[in-house]
């Protein structure tokens, strides 16, 4: 403690400020009053701490006990999602179509030549972006950073369950780009080129 005090004594004096004569006089007058102020401050401090020691833990426990658990569901309830389309012949299946996202992509047909197709997407891990929408665009772009023009909304994607959408018209014949778009973040999460083989299954 001696070293501490000595060090502080040698250093702190260098940081004091110059005072005017009037302020020195004022301080000298106040000095006598100072003596009588300290004990009340100590008593006030004791009172504050004693009060806090009782009330704050009480308020803390009350606040915690008022917590409500938010119900969470891993899957969208069946009533909120349409029955998935299902076609028997798998034309196309890929696990790594989407860069950085583990989503199984499948294209199925009833028969060849296909007049209508079903696109199936099944996330293999939780998707952490809000309000994901799936678009198909006739424009060819493997790395779209914004929603392409003429993009057709297919539907929503959430959870880990399989989602499927019917592709028809130009979507069946042409190459196109699939886009995952987060409505909540207003950003394109991923895009992938979708080239549907017309001759049979491609893994």
């Amino acid at each position: 403690m001696a070293n501490v005090g000595k060090t502080l004594a040698q250093t702190e004096h260098s940081s004091r400020r110059k005072q005017s004569a009037s302020s020195r006089r004022a301080r000298a007058l106040r000095a006598a009053d100072t003596k009588n102020m300290i004990r009340p401050l100590r008593q006030r401090h004791r009172l504050i701490i004693s009060t806090l020691a009782v009330l704050l833990p009480l308020a803390f426990v009350l606040g915690l006990s008022a917590r409500k658990t938010s119900p969470t569901m891993r899957e969208t309830p069946p009533a909120l999602r349409p029955e998935p389309f299902s076609l028997p012949r798998v034309l196309f299946e890929k696990e790594d179509l989407w860069s950085g996202m583990k989503i199984t992509t499948r294209v199925c047909a009833e028969a060849l030549p296909a007049t209508r197709l079903v696109l199936e997407l099944q996330p293999q891990e939780d998707l952490h972006s809000p309000d994901i929408l799936v678009y198909w665009s006739p424009q060819i772009s493997g790395s779209a950073h914004e929603l392409l023009k003429e993009a057709h909304l297919l539907g929503t994607l959430a959870g880990r369950q399989k989602h499927s959408w019917l592709l028809s018209g130009t979507m069946v014949q042409a190459e196109g780009t699939l886009i995952l778009y987060s409505l909540g973040h207003q950003t394109v999460l991923a895009s992938a080129l979708l080239k549907i083989p017309q001759g049979g299954q491609q893994q």
């Binding site: 403690m1 502080l8 004594a9 702190e12 004096h13």
Partner: peptide
């Protein structure tokens, strides 16, 4: 403590 003949405050070293 008394350091160099002066009472020295333990908080900030005022003497």
């Amino acid at each position: 403590m008394i350091i160099n003949g002066c009472i020295t405050c333990p908080w900030h070293g005022y003497q």
